[in-house]
Design a protein around this nucleic acid. Structure first.
Ligand SMILES: [Zn+2]
Ligand SMILES: [Zn+2]
Ligand SMILES: [Zn+2]
Ligand SMILES: [Zn+2]
Lengths: 153, 153
DNA sequence: GAACGCGCTGAGAACGATTCTCAACAGCCA
DNA sequence: TGGCTGTTGAGAATCGTTCTCAGCGCGTTC
């Protein structure tokens, strides 16, 4: 848990830095609601959806409206701090964008657990497939659905 | 184009067979609208969305309602003739389910072209990833986004 | 082939997630 | 402090999809 925590803090600072830069550049302001929502988002364990985030935020400040959470989530996407992903059939969830790395997902269809994985061989094969069909890739989505260890037993 | 056409016909018959069996088994009926919608869906080139299908159906029979198209699309999913997929961020599209084969997708972000691909090596590596994390897989979604040959030049 | 029971249909209402609208409010700078 | 402008919450609006319901027609029975 030691190095992992440090790593997370680094990401958090990097995220705030990005937000600050973006706000300044666009002439936008920093407000209490904004800060609270961003703070809550960064503290969450990732793969959170708008409703869950709104609940978490309201727990700390009842008055914050859902619209503001949606607006902030869009802001975070625009400045490269958050990425939206659509799991299953239509579950839209947000996670902190990882700027020096890439991962895909294993999703448990029973308990909803989402595990991240990286596989260089698969990544390389994707490029081969793209070349085979004359595509130039910009991104991809690779999701494996099934049952996690817990839900199998 | 020769064998390809034959193959498509076989799939079409198989699909109708599946529909017929399902209707009979569930005590459901065959109607003019139903038949028209299924016919139109099977004739489409795949990866069609509800709105496009509705337009195509209305071109042949103005009176058919959107609700009936949605209902039929659900019926087709239930009987294993169609599968719904969500491309990009939220574009829900349907294609004819391939019962003796599996494929994934290359999607052009500029013109929307969708190309299907199969890669046994990638499939094998997915199983390896699942084993590594203790998952038992049931399905997966693998989509490669980028520009197709046409849109690159 | 008339009658009947029940599934099917179209129109529009309802829905859930997200975005928009707008009047009140609050940063930030002079 | 005042003023300019970005921000906010509530509720309306939107969009794709599902639901509701009264009337319609498929398929079976006699
Ligand atoms: Zn699980
Ligand atoms: Zn992730
Ligand atoms: Zn293209
Ligand atoms: Zn396909």
């Amino acid at each position: 848990m030691g190095p992992r925590t440090v790593e997370k803090h680094v990401h958090k600072d990097e995220a705030w830095e990005r937000v600050r830069r973006y706000l300044a550049q666009k002439g936008l302001r920093s407000t209490g609601q904004r800060d609270l929502i961003i703070e809550t988002f960064l503290a969450a364990s990732g793969h959170i959806n708008a409703e869950e985030l709104t609940r978490a935020v309201k727990r700390r400040n009842r008055g914050v409206g859902a619209a503001t959470v949606y607006r902030t989530l869009r802001l975070l996407s625009d400045c490269g701090v958050a990425v939206a992903r659509t799991f299953g059939d239509g579950e839209k969830r947000y996670e902190v964008e990882d700027h020096d790395g890439h991962h895909d997902h294993l999703i448990c269809e029973s308990c909803g657990t989402i595990v991240e994985f990286e596989d260089d061989e698969i990544e390389a094969l994707q490029d081969a497939v793209a070349k085979r069909y004359g595509f130039r890739l910009s991104r991809h989505k690779h999701e494996l659905y099934g049952l996690c260890r817990k839900c199998i037993s």
